[in-house]
C-alpha cells in the first residue's frame, strides 16, 4: 500500500485554504472590473480571470498538478476539441456573405413572436417573410 499512499497526495490544509481564498479574491476582482467599461477588452479580461480561476480549481482541487499526466491529457483534450467545434463553426458564421451578399442575408431576422406586437411596419414583415422562404429553400436537405 506504500505506493498507494504516495499517490494519494494528501495536500496541506493551508494550500486548500489559500486556493479557496484566491478564488474568492478573483471573484471580487472580476465583479469590480466589470463595473468599469474597457470596451472590447471587457470580454478578454473577464475570460482571462475565469481561466485563471478554472486553472486553480483544476490544478489543486482536482489534483491535476499531482496526478498522473493522463488525466491532464483527457481534460485538455476535451477543451481542444471544444475549441475546434466553436472556432470551425465560426469560420462559417462570422464570414457569411464574403462573396455573395445574399447568402448572409436570410438569417438573423426578427423572430415571428415580435410581429404581432406592432402593426405599422408591413413592409419589413414582407421582407422578413421572403427571407424566411429563401432560408428554407437554401437549406433543404443536403448531406452525404
Amino acid at each position: 500500500m506504500k505506493d498507494d499512499a504516495a499517490q494519494r497526495h494528501i495536500l496541506p490544509l493551508n494550500l486548500y485554504l489559500a486556493v479557496g481564498s484566491g478564488l474568492l479574491v478573483l471573484t471580487v476582482i472580476t465583479v469590480a472590473v466589470a463595473q468599469m467599461d474597457f470596451g472590447q477588452m471587457n470580454l478578454l479580461i473577464a475570460m482571462g480571470i475565469a481561466v485563471v480561476k478554472a486553472t486553480l480549481v483544476a490544478m489543486f482541487f482536482m489534483h491535476l498538478k499531482y496526478d498522473n499526466r493522463i488525466y491532464m491529457l483527457v481534460f485538455v483534450g476535451s477543451l481542444l476539441f471544444l475549441g475546434v467545434f466553436i472556432i470551425f463553426t465560426m469560420f462559417d458564421t462570422l464570414r457569411r456573405g464574403d462573396i455573395y451578399e445574399e447568402i448572409a442575408e436570410p438569417y438573423q431576422k426578427e423572430a415571428v413572436i415580435y410581429r404581432t406586437a406592432e402593426t405599422g411596419t408591413a413592409s419589413s414583415h414582407a421582407a422578413a417573410d421572403s427571407s424566411h422562404n429563401a432560408a428554407e429553400t437554401e437549406t433543404e436537405t443536403s448531406d452525404h
Partner: peptide, 8 residues
Amino acid sequence: VSGQSDLA
C-alpha cells in the same frame, strides 16, 4: 451547398 461561408 447549404449556405455556409465560402471561407469555411
